[in-house]
């Protein structure tokens, strides 16, 4: 059987359990515990995770200018290529190819615009790097067309063949 009347316990601090005379800033905590809630420290494992994320952020920020400048160079190269300014396009694509030597797209574009700019040596070197790589049909077709045209220029015409 439940007791008929239950003695109401006085309000207590939710942190230390001490009886409270009054609320602090509207909260059921004593004046001694309140500053601890305001300056609540981060748990150790969160400090470790935060440090890890901070480290990764620093790593990203170190890479940031290099990646961004390559992205910008590619865009400038693309615009120069559209404007048929092949020398400028070659300079810009060369920046990207140097930064990302495994990028088939950057090397292919460098080869194509180098040929169009009359820099056959760079074009040949670029196309040599592309051997055995997989790329889109469109880019492969473009590279093959330029490589064929370049071969016709470089290999001496057969006797009697029309120029």
């Amino acid at each position: 059987m439940e007791s008929a009347t239950e003695e109401e316990s006085p309000p207590q601090c939710i942190i230390c359990g001490q009886p409270l005379d009054s609320l602090t800033e509207g909260l059921p905590v004593c004046a001694g515990c309140y500053p601890g809630l305001v300056d609540r420290p981060l748990p150790r494992w969160i400090q470790v995770v935060t440090a890890f994320i901070g480290l990764v952020l620093v790593l990203s920020l170190v890479q940031f200018p290099l990646s961004l400048s390559a992205g910008i160079a590619f865009e400038r190269g693309r615009r120069a290529e559209v404007a048929r300014n092949y020398k400028l396009a070659e300079q810009q694509y060369a920046i990207v190819a140097k930064r990302f030597p495994s990028s088939t797209l950057a090397i292919a574009r460098l080869g194509i615009v180098s040929y169009r700019a009359g820099d056959l040596l760079t074009a040949i070197k670029s196309f040599e790097k592309l051997g055995g790589r997989e790329t889109s049909e469109e880019l492969a077709g473009e590279v093959n067309a330029v490589a064929d045209a370049m071969m016709k220029k470089l290999v001496p015409q057969e006797e009697g063949a029309q120029p």
Partner: peptide, 23 residues
């Protein structure tokens, strides 16, 4: 800020390294 330096080589140039995928 964390993804951008990795997204450029991975998405634009298909030249990502394992660290880029982590980022």
């Amino acid at each position: 800020l964390i993804a951008t330096p990795a997204a450029i080589p991975v998405i634009q140039f298909s030249a990502g390294k394992p660290l880029d995928y982590l980022l």
